[in-house]
């Protein structure tokens, strides 16, 4: 991977620590979501894995949004 940026490598990759992310895959509306556990039953969407293009424009399923899942 080649990074072409004005930000020095040390700043981009500095203080890299292993985050103990609890990543899970859940299926919502027939579309697979990679989510991180926030608290209790709420999850933050990391990314969408779907062949349905409309899912990528859906405002509810943008990366960063929070969903409740039990």
């Amino acid at each position: 991977m080649i990074i072409h940026s004005i930000v020095p490598y040390e700043i981009i990759f500095g203080q890299q620590q292993e985050e103990s992310k609890q990543t899970k895959y859940i299926s919502v509306n027939n579309c697979l979501l990679e989510v991180t556990l926030m608290e209790g039953d709420t999850y933050k969407i990391n990314r969408i894995i779907s062949a349905n293009l409309a899912a990528y424009l859906s405002p509810d399923m943008q990366p960063g949004s929070i969903i409740r899942y039990r």
Binding site: H4, I6, S50
Partner: peptide, 29 residues
């Protein structure tokens, strides 16, 4: 995420145009 989103924008009949706002320091080539 951006790549399938661009495909969706190109394919979606409800979208007529795309405005791209850039404020980026660079990144992966």
């Amino acid at each position: 995420h951006v790549i399938p989103q661009l495909v969706a924008i190109e394919e979606n009949n409800e979208v007529d145009g795309l405005l791209i706002i850039l404020n980026t320091v660079g990144g992966d080539v």
